[in-house]
C-alpha cells in the first residue's frame, strides 16, 4: 500500500504490507516523518491510499462508500497525544458524548459510563472537568471514551507523548488490560522505555518503509 500526499515530493508511506491479527498489541515506531501517524489516519479512513488496499475488521476500507464510514468507525476506538476532550464537559459527559452522538439512549449512557470510568480508574472523578484533571487522568477519560463502545480495534497515536514516565507506565498498564479483553491495539509511539518494557510486536518504519517487524521486540 502506498500513500502519497498531494504536495509531498515523496510518498509518506511506500509499498508496505503488514497484517495484524485479532487481539494483537502492535507498536509502530520510527523517527518523525517515517509515516507512523499516516498509518492511523489510513486505518481510520481519514485518508485513503493512492494505491493498495486496507482491511480492518474484515472490511475493505479504501473502496468503502463514504456514508458507511461512520458505522465503520464505531468499531474502532481512538486515542491521541492531545487527549481531544471537550473542555466544557465533565469526564462522564465526555464519555457519554461518544454514546450520545451515535444515537444511544440516556439510559444506556447512565449504565455504561460509570462502568467504563471505573475500569480506567477514574471512579469518583466522573464530574470533574478536563482542566481539573491531570494529564494522565485526562488520557484515561479519552481511553474510556474510546473503549465505551467496546471496539474491536483501539488505535493510539502517541498516547503517552504528553505524559511523564510514571504516568505513561500507568496508561500502558491500562491499555494492556484492555488488550487482554481481546481488543486489538495499534499504537504509534517513539517512547523507547515503554516499547522495551512491554515486549510486544514492534514494527519499525523509516522513510515510509517497514525496516523491521519483530514479535516481542524492543526499541531500536
Amino acid at each position: 500500500m502506498t500513500k502519497k500526499y498531494a504536495r509531498a515530493s515523496r510518498p509518506s508511506i511506500e509499498d508496505i504490507n503488514v497484517s495484524i491479527d485479532k487481539g494483537e498489541f502492535v507498536f509502530f515506531i520510527g523517527p518523525t516523518g517515517a509515516g507512523k501517524s499516516t498509518i492511523i489516519k489510513l486505518l481510520l479512513r481519514e485518508e485513503t491510499p493512492n494505491k493498495g488496499k486496507i482491511w480492518v475488521n474484515d472490511k475493505e476500507v479504501v473502496g468503502m462508500r463514504s456514508w458507511r464510514v461512520p458505522a465503520f468507525r464505531r468499531s474502532l476506538g481512538c486515542v491521541f497525544q492531545d487527549f481531544r476532550l471537550l473542555p466544557t464537559r465533565t469526564a462522564a459527559e465526555n464519555v457519554a458524548f461518544a454514546l450520545e452522538v451515535i444515537g444511544k439512549s440516556k439510559a444506556v449512557a447512565r449504565r455504561v459510563v460509570p462502568e467504563v470510568l471505573e475500569l480506567v480508574g477514574l471512579g469518583g472523578k466522573e464530574h470533574r472537568y478536563p482542566h481539573e484533571l491531570s494529564g494522565g487522568e485526562q488520557q484515561r477519560v479519552a481511553i474510556a471514551r474510546a473503549f465505551v463502545n467496546r471496539p474491536l480495534v483501539l488505535l493510539a497515536d502517541e498516547p503517552t507523548g504528553n505524559l511523564d514516565p510514571d504516568t505513561s507506565v500507568e496508561i500502558m498498564r491500562l491499555l494492556d488490560r484492555i488488550n487482554r479483553t481481546g481488543t486489538t491495539i495499534v499504537m504509534v509511539t517513539h517512547d523507547s522505555n515503554i516499547v522495551n518494557q512491554m515486549r510486544r510486536r514492534v514494527i519499525e518504519m523509516e522513510g515510509g518503509h517497514v525496516v523491521r517487524d519483530q514479535s516481542r521486540g524492543v526499541y531500536g
Binding site: S66, P70, R74, C78, R84, R145
Partner: peptide
C-alpha cells in the same frame, strides 16, 4: 473540536 470528536467516534453525517 466537537465535530472532530463526533466524526472520530462514528456519528453519522446527518447527526453532525
Amino acid at each position: 473540536r466537537e465535530v472532530a470528536i463526533m466524526k472520530l467516534v462514528g456519528a453519522s453525517n446527518w447527526f453532525v
